[in-house]
Amino acid sequence: MLRLPRRVLLRALLLEGTAGIIAASGLPACVSEKEAESSDAARLSVLSGYFDGRLAEAARIGRVSLSNDALQAAGHLEALERSAEIIASARDPGPALAELDARVEAELAKGDVVEVAGWILSPTEVALCILAARQLDG
């Protein structure tokens, strides 16, 4: 799986949103326009699929997380990095969703949590909310 330098990832995330992450991920550019559209759709469908289409609500949680630096404060920025990678490299939503679910479950089993406006959440689901916010906010 492709690993991104955190600095690059965060810059891309904060400045350019999910599109920036996807661009920064360095995924093969030499694909046809049709192929690119197809893989972009797959990536977006991961996020949408994770929240069962309720991206706007997830984005709201993401915006609150960003305004509070919730992930960073809890020392879980790697969840953002890893979630972005999973999404960026997704060709098919199914395996990506399964991997994200497994990460959430593992974090909760370890007691790794982030507090966002009082909600006790897993770092990965907070990361996904941030990505949803960036997706919608451009």
Partner: peptide, 18 residues
């Protein structure tokens, strides 16, 4: 919770229960 109400937070569980 004014910032994130229960309706909003339920998006996190939406795949399992609408």
């Amino acid at each position: 919770n004014e910032m994130i109400g229960a309706n909003t937070a339920s998006a996190l569980l939406a795949r399992r229960d609408e």
